[in-house]
Nucleic acid binder design. Structure first.
Lengths: 199, 199, 199, 199
DNA sequence: AATGAATGAGTTTTCATTCAT
DNA sequence: AATGAATGAAAACTCATTCAT
């Protein structure tokens, strides 16, 4: 992961990152070749190693760049209705997932193959859930959420539900549209979290 | 996927399937070698091809055999409490997932790489969700489920939540135990499905 | 090249020879598999080696059987017109070649690969030419053939011309029909052999 | 069939072509190994595939280079004696065939195995015959050739005779020398083509 | 005799990475 | 920095032949 000094170097490196994304999306990680990437980038095979130590390293960079603009949905415990921001968040999440669907598949692939990527994913999931859990706790304190729920486990479950829906919809090609996804997600979050009167 | 005629053939084939599972679990799909499998099975490399056309084909068989004893959780719309069978179903599902965790990772891997496996997964998910959806509809008719929910989308979401939890817990190694998983899942399903008084 | 004792053995062996011809014609020698032949013959792989020591050996038998009904054209030095029998001989030769065209290609193949087959072919060609040469000599003695011709070399040349025409016509798929082939061959033999007045 | 950019690449590629010829001549096509060729060329196995996609492709190049200096015998319809150039042409043809005899055998081999090479051969034969046919026609017009002959078929037959003789002589190892071959060929062409007084 | 499975040496081909220029 | 060729260790797969039943 060498950092370019010259203008020319920066250009080559950028071309390789862009080409990497293109090729990874088209062929997946395992089935992509360094030679394909350099051809796509319009440079010589050898030049790849001027900037990256391996295919994995390039993938890391590609994924990192792609995830910079990912918005994670969040509850807003301070709002009158804590769910309003969530709805919008989910919509953005689904839209983003759709845009990056092929890349998500690649992520799935390397997560399955490489423990390091797996650990990364676990950490990300954990961090996200922890934040949601905190909000749930606060909502429980305010009587806005079912006190019987384990905040962290619930957060995990609800987060997972969303990413799973996105995977089925945009990677596996299930047909339902984003509006329907958002609506369902929204309602289930509300139902699941809201305090029950019966039970 | 040739079928053995003789006793001896059956033995060799079975040894290869068992060895396949062992090796796939240990090394993953991409990183496993036919030679490792035959060594594990105690036969010659060539014998592999007597029974299977490729590594993929062996994996199909291994996965098929592993999934034969998978129990899928189901709601029971006819019971007084439709959720009781579900709780037990989820427990069994998690236990099973834990037992087959490494194999599930392999499944994830090939689903990411091979469109055929992906399609298989989509179909399985769809079939499962369709069944759950039918039950939800019935429950809605009986006033036992929130009529505002789209039955199919909800089924998808809840199913997905469960498998996602299992993945994080047993593949990525999140720490919480099965009891906690079952409890959380159970409560979220109840909350999500039950008709709301407010709203 | 074991000889069958039992009725059953004879049947299997015959089936293998027939299957061999079919498969060799379809796939050529190098690209044919013992397994294909036994499948075609409806017997087990192992049974092949009960009757033949190798694929080459089977081919020898197949070729031998096919060449049993080959008629070689010959001049008749005792006839008023020595060429009349020749015309008919050439016709039969071409007809036969056409029937066995695929097999001739296989013969070409093994002759190119295997010195033993090459030697066989050389011998056959030599024997045939020698016979023709004898007739030419007699014709020269009777003033019916150009005395300037080297009988053996001429025989070789004319024989070769015929087989070459057959190869181009029926193996390579040149379009001209047998009548035309016979006519041309006939006329060239006559012209080539007949004594010249000028020269 | 990649084209080298650098001097070094050109050297390696040329070495492979030379080595290919050596090995093909020694072992034939089917019985030659890529590894033998690269060893002979003094480079690594992988380097073969930098320049050629397959063994077939290398053979094409080898044959193409070998055929560049092949001289085809031709009649000269404008000369007083149309056969004088032919005699010299045949001599050169035989000499050349003798020099390339092993390669001709390889050509025979691939023509027998590979339809693409067969088609190539057919085309070449056709083109050559067509040219000879044109000359024969002209000779017929000038009263120099037997008008009863079908020019194209005759051309085919006479050409075939020559190549067949060469094959028997230099590939199968028939003993007669080039002088004898030329003389016989020459005389037969003359006899065959010249207008007959009787008939 | 027939069967059908087992064997394993032998080859092609791929491709990440290195290297000389 | 870039280039483009060289490298050679894999790995999959084939198939004639052998062998136990």
């Amino acid at each position: 992961m060498t950092v370019p000094t010259t203008e020319r170097g920066a250009r080559t490196r950028a071309a390789l990152v862009a080409a990497g994304r293109t090729v990874f999306e088209r062929d997946g990680f395992t089935d992509s070749r360094i030679a394909d990437i350099t051809r796509e980038a319009g440079c010589a095979t050898g030049s790849f190693y001027t900037w990256f130590a391996s295919k994995s390293e390039l993938l890391s960079v590609v994924l990192y760049e792609a995830q910079r603009d990912v918005v994670v949905p969040r509850l807003d415990a301070t709002a009158a209705d804590p769910f309003v921001t969530l709805t919008e968040g989910h919509r953005r999440y689904f839209e983003n997932y759709q845009r990056n669907a092929r890349l998500m598949l690649v992520l799935e692939e390397v997560a399955a193959v490489d423990p390091a990527f797996r650990e990364l994913r676990r950490r990300r999931g954990e961090a996200l859930a922890r934040r949601t859990a905190t909000t749930i706790e606060k909502m429980q304190g305010d009587g806005l959420a079912d006190p019987a729920l384990d905040p962290y486990a619930t957060a995990r479950a609800l987060d997972g539900m969303v990413s799973h829906l996105a995977y089925y919809a945009f990677v596996l090609g299930d047909t339902f549209d984003i509006d329907a996804l958002v609506e369902t997600t929204d309602r289930i979050w509300r139902n699941a979290l809201s305090p029950r009167h019966q039970t």
